[in-house]
């Protein structure tokens, strides 16, 4: 696995390395258990996990790269390409859908210039200007305050159409 874009592994700052070493200590029985934690740390820092990241994490945990690649591709949370600057996750599942999350999702896609037909399927399309990635996600465990979405790492509850306008304007 070589790629000209695979450069993350050459740019690991000391602070990230320190967190990685610390995370591995949480798993005294098996280093492999640190796979997900390392992937989280990596993605939180770089925004996504490139090929060099997969190879680096695998080597760090004494695994073949496939052992990391097969979980990067399994979990919806991880991505191998750069997302937009702001990530909006809209809950798609029943209670939120009943409260109008499809309409909110359409509105967000329209406001950010994303094709909503593309967005209704799973995946994380990015707006042409690179400012937003929008993902229609499954249940976010806040059904009592439906509809909900996440703006980057923050949950927003009882989202209204007016909220969407504000959020998109704020992050444009």
């Amino acid at each position: 696995m070589t790629s000209t874009t695979a450069i993350q592994a050459s740019q690991i700052p000391p602070a990230l390395l320190e967190k990685i070493e610390e995370a591995i200590t949480h798993y005294p029985v098996s280093r492999r258990s640190a796979a997900l934690p390392l992937m989280h740390l990596w993605q939180n820092h770089f925004g996504f996990i490139d090929e060099s990241g997969i190879e680096w994490i695998a080597a760090k945990l004494e695994l073949q790269p496939i052992a990391i690649l097969e979980i990067v591709t399994f979990y919806p949370w991880f991505r191998q390409t750069a997302p937009g600057k702001t990530i909006i996750r809209v809950c798609r599942t029943l209670s939120c859908a009943m409260a109008g999350s499809y309409e909110l999702h359409d509105q967000i896609c329209k406001a950010t210039g994303i094709d909503s037909e593309q967005g209704h399927s799973h995946g994380m399309p990015t707006s042409p200007d690179g400012k937003f990635s929008v993902e229609f996600v499954e249940c976010l465990a806040s059904c009592g305050t439906a509809p909900v979405c996440m703006i980057n790492n923050d949950l927003v509850e009882k989202v209204t159409s007016a909220d969407i306008e504000t959020i998109v304007a704020q992050h444009s």
Binding site: H26, Y27, S33, L36, P37, M39, H40, I71, F74, Y75, P76, W77, F78, V137, E138, C139
Partner: peptide, 10 residues
């Protein structure tokens, strides 16, 4: 006790 985060899979 340690906290372990998943990856968004039901």
């Amino acid at each position: 006790v340690y906290v372990h985060e998943g990856g968004g899979a039901y």
